[in-house]
């Protein structure tokens, strides 16, 4: 897929939570390029002396009617904090789409579980939307520390079945996603996961134990995002490979995780 450098205009900036912001942006000049669920953008952070590199942010949703791309940003450092201070009408520079993306269902018979934790839910919304276009209803299993950390609940519910876990029990079942009763009661043809690494390892271990194909989305630290700098490598069965070009989505069989 051809990669583009674009100056986008923010149409809406919504603070979802003290640590999360939703950026909705459009290209006033042209229809946005084709993007796959699981792919990401490299967003330039302007006017911040403490940051230097772009920030890799996954594509949260693409709305073709309004020609918008959405980014769900967790404020973790100076770069993401600067992004959270942007306002509607501001211009910001992105390179997209980057990386490979999740495997879309090949037929409507597939039953796909999308598991997300924290800001890792971001790419799953777009994945769910694309699955619906293909006539497959997604099942979401979303985990967070507490009810207030469960993001975009309404948007997920509009696409398919949604199950929650929270560590404090304020929403859904108490505990981690891998402890949810859904995993005891149902089987899936594939599982796609994005979230903190310990969570992804736990889900990968579950998927392996029930012989279900499983894809995980890695977020290794990146510099270029284009496969040039070789900084974001993951140790795989084929040696060190760039997460930005060979990933960010990997089948768990490609990784050397102890599962």
């Amino acid at each position: 897929m051809k990669k583009h450098i674009l100056d986008l205009i923010l149409t809406r900036v919504a603070c979802l939570h003290e640590r999360y912001v939703l950026l909705q942006a459009t290209d006033p000049a042209a229809p946005l390029p084709e993007m796959m669920p699981g792919q990401f953008a490299q967003i330039r952070v302007d006017g911040n002396k403490d940051t230097f590199l772009r920030r890799p942010i996954s594509i949260h949703n693409v709305d073709r009617r309004s020609n918008e791309v959405w980014f769900l940003v967790q404020i973790v450092g100076e770069g993401t904090r600067a992004l959270s201070r942007l306002q509607a009408g501001d211009k910001f520079n992105v390179i997209l789409p980057l990386g490979n993306g999740f495997t879309l269902p090949a037929s409507s018979d597939e039953k796909v579980l999308l598991v997300g934790g924290g800001v890792g839910v971001a790419p799953l919304l777009y994945m769910g939307a694309r699955m619906r276009e293909l006539g497959v209803e997604p099942t979401f299993l979303l985990g967070a520390r507490s009810q207030s950390d469960l993001l975009q609940q309404k948007a997920f519910r509009a696409l398919g079945r949604v199950f929650f876990t929270t560590e404090d029990g304020t929403a859904g079942e108490r505990g981690f996603v891998t402890q949810h009763s859904l995993l005891q009661n149902e089987r899936f043809s594939r599982i796609c996961v994005c979230g903190p690494k310990p969570m992804m390892i736990a889900v990968a271990r579950y998927a392996k134990s029930v012989s279900t194909p499983c894809e995980v989305s890695l977020e290794n630290m990146m510099a270029c995002g284009l496969g040039a700098c070789l900084c974001c490598v993951e140790d795989t069965v084929e040696g060190n490979v760039c997460v930005c070009t060979e990933g960010p989505v990997f089948n768990i069989n490609q990784l050397k995780w102890q599962i």
Binding site: F52, L53, N220, C229, C231, C232, V233, E234, D235, N240
Partner: peptide, 22 residues
């Protein structure tokens, strides 16, 4: 194979790398 991850650290107006000729 180059060096192990992490290979990069952002700095003020720059970055450090230790890719190691992968």
């Amino acid at each position: 194979q180059g060096n192990a991850y992490p290979r990069m650290a952002e700095t003020a107006s720059g970055m450090l790398n230790c890719v190691g000729l992968q």
